[in-house]
Design a protein around this nucleic acid. Structure first.
Lengths: 226, 226
DNA sequence: AGACAATCGAACCGATTGGTTCGAATAAGA
DNA sequence: TCTTATTCGAACCAATCGGTTCGATTGTCT
């Protein structure tokens, strides 16, 4: 089952599936597990890993501490599980934009708007803070969060850019991966770090993001447009 | 004295300066204070605010806990004091580069190299993580860190860009502040977030930063160069 | 040398922590 | 209805926390 949560795997491996639909074995009820993860996410987002207590989490999740430890080995296992669950569904939507066969200027604009809106939202910023706070002690989270992995926004954008170069829609790009990252960071310019550091306490307005993205598209096309 | 450290102010206000050079009053020895701040910084950088204990800090700093509480009111006061002490001296060096009257391409390059090297260093990244981790609970730190304040890199760059526009060295720039931020984030593109999230565990090489900065300068001048 | 004050160092306090245990309560299935 | 198993809930354990206290030690000044 879940590779990180060894306990669940152990339980699964030692207990055969009960007859019929049946009652899930202890620690195997997906509804109860989601309930715990929802409560944990809420508390970890508010307080961070260290300051969040297992008591806080049991209260928020509405389960007993005994039950919590049936489903998760320890505090860190729980934390890792919520990070893993936060698989970004945004990639599917970004991919859809890149596959629409719109003019490059419109595709980049739509991509930039979705990417920026997502990255600058409260949920993403709080999640980012949560991970950044502990990344030194839990380096395995770097692989889970996948900022620069093969499925990341910049990577899929790089693939898109290469296709447009091949189709003659864009000038030659020596390093599409680098340019994909540049475009993403241009869209976030002047917004992401102020969001992380608490200078922008609210997500920027759509208009403010629009100005950033429009400028990013213009800078980009001034160099790579045909 | 130090506005955050109320205890020191109280001590100062109630005890007259001793005769002659004399021995500093309790809680007033700057050498001892720096010793505590150095130890605290080390521990906070490694473990973050919550996970760092006052016992860890007394050991690292080489002072007793009683002494630590003579100099600082509590754990949070100590933390704020080290953040305040981390005033970035980088701004002076960035300002020097902007005042050299070199060609724009060289100035932007030198600025970008210094800015990126600083932002991507271990020290800055660890310091950033430390602040990001607690910014929700200590919003006053946002003002201390000054990511986007009047003395920040992008702000001084904006002023420089406006001067170059006025001198006919650059095309008209509608929003120099925004363009200053864009240039800074272009220099960091694809590097800063991977550094924060632990995907880049070491600072990038000078060559890697050079490629980023050179590309940023080129993109910038393709739009604003004359 | 003596006086005085800063610092040490360890014990202390009240509180909370992560994790464990186990009888009682509840829920599900036959 | 009865059986079985999951979950509850609270007590427990050992440890640690932030912060306080105070007699002893050390250092500085006269």
């Amino acid at each position: 089952m879940n590779e990180v949560d060894g306990k669940a795997d152990a339980v699964t491996m030692t207990q055969p599936e009960p007859q019929g639909a049946g009652r899930p074995a202890a620690g195997e009820d997906p509804i109860k597990r989601e309930q715990i993860l929802d409560g944990a996410l809420c508390v970890f987002m508010q307080m961070g890993f260290d300051a969040a207590s297992m008591n806080d989490i049991t209260r928020e999740a509405g389960v007993s501490k005994g039950t919590l430890y049936v489903y998760f080995k320890n505090k860190e296992d729980l934390f890792v599980a919520i990070i893993e669950r936060q698989k970004l569904r945004i990639f599917g939507r970004l991919q859809e934009i890149l596959e629409k066969n719109l003019p490059v200027v419109e595709t980049l604009h739509d991509f930039g708007m979705l990417f920026s809106t997502h990255m600058l939202s409260d949920r993403t910023v709080r999640g980012a803070r949560m991970v950044i706070a502990v990344i030194d002690r839990m380096p395995q989270l770097a692989n889970l969060f996948m900022v620069a992995g093969p499925n990341s926004g910049p990577a899929m954008l790089a693939n898109y850019l290469q296709r447009q170069v091949d189709n003659g829609q864009l000038k030659e790009i020596e390093d599409p991966m680098m340019v994909g990252r540049q475009f993403g960071d241009l869209c976030l310019a002047g917004l992401f770090r102020p969001r992380l550091f608490g200078e922008l306490t609210e997500p920027p307005t759509a208009e403010r993001i629009e100005r950033n993205v429009a400028s990013a598209v213009r800078l980009f096309l001034n160099t790579y447009g045909v």
